[in-house]
Nucleic acid binder design. Structure first.
Lengths: 169, 169
DNA sequence: TAACGGTGGTTGAACTCTCAACACCAGCGG
DNA sequence: CCGCTGGTGTTGAGAGTTCAACCACCGTTA
């Protein structure tokens, strides 16, 4: 385990460029969302995914998967959103363990109010500063990284029969 | 302000690819750092920047800038790192307002212990899954996004004489 | 020297996230 | 019918972040 493949000087520059941009931009977009709409980006993502689901409702576990959050985080987040009157929790029919989370009219209105500012921020800082070629490359890069994370989870699950494989988001 | 330039279907796919990858990867690398070294990525970044500074020490404000964190966050973080014995705070000479933060030997040892696992994770999920062309593109993309964020700050400062321009990281 | 706006840094409260239990139920095998 | 394993979702405590004051000090100006 001592033969670490350290980063070359050029690799370090690439890694720093990636890290700086993603950290700074995610901070920027999160701050924009909090200031203009009073919720963090993670909550906005939950509302978006709900709004795109059939009947604007989703099982908690599915909602956790698509909104890129852990189950525990989703539980806390939905509790907060419910206090705002933006979502409702109802028992799932057919499985007395499960719950479905449904977007309310107020929640949809809050989402509609938040969307313009969010989209404008994304356009200004991503689509307006990158060339079409860079955007295509960005898609490929994102998919490659996501695929790499998924295959690591699969590999960990396969070779690790002792459970607890730490691969939830 | 009603003419929002919404995202096309293809733009939405690109944005989703970017968002999924960055959120999932940052969660992954943060979890790796917490499990293996007991500190979040933000703290590791602080130690790294300190270790690269002359005499392994830096003014608080400079440290905040290079480690991509707000002043408040850095204050709390350095307080925690100081409790671990990994950094020390000393008054800055020449300016009785300021403080310099210095990496201790224990802090350097903690950084050296954390680095291999961190670098391995970065290599496996970035450099091993992307082509040389994609890596070059990733650097350009990161620099373009960072530049866009900086120019927005400059523009906001220029046209906004009422102060409070919200451009700290 | 006294006032004053600007900078450096801290603090505390509220909020969000993570982690490790925990409760509950489904499905299956004895 | 009971136990057992696994999946669903929640809870509470602790850690980390944000935001809005706040204090102390600098440099400038009157």
């Amino acid at each position: 385990m001592d033969d670490v493949r350290w980063l070359s000087a050029e690799e370090q520059e690439i890694w720093r460029a990636y890290l700086s941009a993603t950290v700074a931009f995610s901070a920027h977009i999160d701050r924009q969302m909090r200031q203009d709409s009073g919720m963090p980006m993670a909550y906005y993502e939950i509302l978006v995914r709900l709004s795109e689901a059939p009947h604007r409702r989703l099982r908690m576990s599915e909602l956790a998967d698509v909104s890129l959050s852990s189950r525990s985080r989703l539980s806390h987040a939905v509790a907060a959103l419910e206090r705002n009157g933006w979502v409702e929790r109802r028992p799932a029919d057919g499985d007395r363990r499960g719950w479905v989370c449904a977007l309310t009219e107020d929640g949809y209105a809050a989402l509609a109010a938040a969307a313009p500012g969010h989209v404008t921020t994304v356009r200004e800082h991503i689509f307006d500063v990158l060339t079409p070629e860079q955007l295509q490359s960005l898609r490929d890069i994102g998919e490659a990284i996501s695929a790499g994370l998924r295959t690591e989870c699969a590999a960990a699950r396969a070779e690790d029969e002792a459970g607890a494989d730490a691969c939830d988001s």
